[in-house]
Design a protein around this nucleic acid. Structure first.
Lengths: 359, 359
DNA sequence: ATATCCCTAGAATTCGATTGCGTGCATACG
DNA sequence: CGTATGCACGCAATCGAATTCTAGGGATAT
């Protein structure tokens, strides 16, 4: 007569039938039982088959590995995360997954992460300060090993606080004020915008240059600064009504162009803070019966694939998001895998003016 | 003289300075100590302030909430996931994040997830069977509450096994063989392709129709079937050399078009399995000096934004990924939040032929 | 034959939150 | 006055894996 409690404690080892009911997930204990060893031995074998702190006999190792294989054991990463070290998880926050500019970057990071056995949490902020903070909160609730951020509103203090509280490794997209050991990858957009403006002024003879910016964002600030520098040097004015605003999407570009073209003295060229808004400008110009670039020249930023395929093709300042994604991923995993503690690096990826039909 | 160990055990409650060293993450125990209650009480208060299994006094609730707020307590979701029920996490596998067709879908799911307090794990499979299996493996290692899948190679058995082992709720993209209680959202692409082919034959008088398929994928199979049905009814042949193959990207479309146009008797129209390949066709045709649609008409599939902006604009069969994303998300969260156990639904989203310049 | 050391592996603890069970106290009732 | 009812809350087990501590067994040396 075996007591009831004694009978229930070890779940019958014979229940190896996979199709029998909602087969509970198989844990290390199950593997241990099947291999006739303790759970800790299983852990030691599976986490470092060869070199462990304590030696394990060849026979035991094989028995454990075989049992794990038979039962289809998969370690529970939630448990592993909880216990301490690595979560095998990184998070990436971009402004908008639906913006072509970020696609390749996300892809790259994603691919490198998978190769390193990491999963990727994706979030988009829509350039919304609230959602950016929400993302930080999320990381504090669900710790990750690394973070790739495209901050538009977050301050260096916010990011420092995140690092302080979670110990997460951070890599930034954009020439942002970066705290401590944070690498940042960015395009040299001030210089690129300056160069493009100089080209418009000196090679193409434009004297009335408008700009569509996105107030409150750092990239926009820097690009406007580049333009101003070129205008200053050339002794050209920047009328207030030529400084239009949008919010990175196509429609806002259409609206801004509409306002610019109905001015008593419209500009001869519009530079936009990204290609989507530039495309919007072209659409509006054509709808109003203007020719591009005859009546209005347009210069974009990013060089999304579409820019090369619309009519007229768009002159734009190319960024290299794939290259940026590469730098982001390798910088992050350098710290994650190799444990690099190097001070924050500023990795600058050059831009390039791509001259097409629209200017 | 207080022993060292005694001094170290309780982290001095006075160390509320946030800038004092690597301030350890604050747990429920800390909150409990600050509020002078047990850790379980904190849990009960914070997880269900109003209706809990056991009653809690108003005073205690306030004290706990205040303490949590002061200490900036954030629950650890890894721990919560481990303990049991919800992980507050869903995973989404698409074929390619960089394909415009999926963007809106991802966005929608992402947005709905955030509104429900869920994070989203993203993975792309690149139509690679290996990576699809890798994704399933990943879910078994890191359990999630729900999954949105775009399976191209996974079998119903694979998906069943996943559900069996993890209890995850699943929603599929595509008219896939779906097991058990799995909803699937798909476009009616067989009918749409059939209709488009009929239109090409009867309204436009085409008799030499080529198709660029992607072998081994379900959507491609169905679309080819739709075309064949239309050809059969019209008594038209389908020469083997007109059945070209690609792999969903632009370059493969260019290559396929190159082969078709150098045939002794080239087709008068090419239908492609997606817009990217259709764009490739147009590029090649123009490079070979053919006019579109004069010498070669082209019909795509998806209606990505670019299709409306290239020259010539592309006639294509529109899918509505935003609508599909909505259905996906609401179907999934209906099961997650409301615990719906309804049998698998087949949610069909119609397609629509968009007639533009290329055909 | 007994002490010593090493090799191996089991037991116990930890991570942070959840939860079934139980207990102390107060009020109510017979 | 003694026991029943119930409210508010604490104890301790649990989730799955990693790690540290400890004990047993075998081999070798004295």
């Amino acid at each position: 007569m075996v007591p009831m409690t004694e009978m229930l404690k070890p779940e019958s080892p014979a229940s190896a039938e996979p199709s029998g009911g909602p087969s509970r997930t198989v844990t290390m204990r199950d593997v241990a039982r099947a291999a006739q060893v303790s759970q800790s031995t299983v852990s030691r074998v599976l986490s470092a088959p060869d070199s462990s702190a304590v030696a394990i006999s060849e026979d035991t190792i094989l028995r454990v590995q075989e049992a794990a294989r038979l039962l289809g054991y998969q370690p529970n990463l939630h448990a592993r995360s909880l216990r301490g070290q690595r979560t095998q998880l990184i998070a990436m926050m971009v402004a908008d997954i639906a913006n072509p500019y970020y696609h390749v970057m996300v892809r790259k990071v994603q691919d490198v992460a998978r190769k390193n056995g990491y999963d990727v949490l994706i979030a988009n902020s829509d350039h919304d300060p609230e959602l950016e903070r929400h993302f930080i909160q999320g990381i504090m609730r669900r710790p990750v090993d690394g973070v790739v951020l495209t901050p538009y509103h977050l301050s260096a203090a916010d990011i420092s606080a995140l690092i302080e509280r979670t110990g997460v490794r951070v890599v930034l997209v954009g020439q942002h004020l970066a705290p401590l050991g944070v690498d940042r990858v960015f395009a040299d957009d001030e210089t690129a915008t300056y160069d493009a403006a100089c080209w418009l002024i000196h090679e193409r003879g434009h004297r009335r240059i408008a700009y569509i910016s996105v107030p409150g964002t750092y990239p926009s600030k820097r690009r406007v600064a580049g333009l101003m520098r070129a205008l200053d040097e050339a002794g050209l004015p920047m009328p207030a009504e030529f400084l239009e605003t949008g919010d990175f999407n196509l429609e806002s570009g259409e609206l801004a162009a509409g306002r610019l073209l109905t001015l008593p003295q419209p500009p001869t060229v519009v530079m936009a803070c990204n290609d989507l808004m530039a495309l919007g400008c072209i659409t509006t110009a054509q709808r109003l019966g203007r020719t591009v670039p005859g009546d209005l020249a347009v210069v974009g930023f990013d060089d999304i694939p579409e820019a090369a395929r619309v009519s007229p093709t768009v002159t734009t300042i190319a960024q290299y998001p794939a290259e940026m994604g590469d730098h982001l991923a390798s910088a992050l995993f350098d710290r994650l895998i190799n444990g690099s503690m190097a001070p924050g690096r500023a990795i600058q990826v050059p831009c390039k003016l791509i001259i097409r039909e629209s200017a």
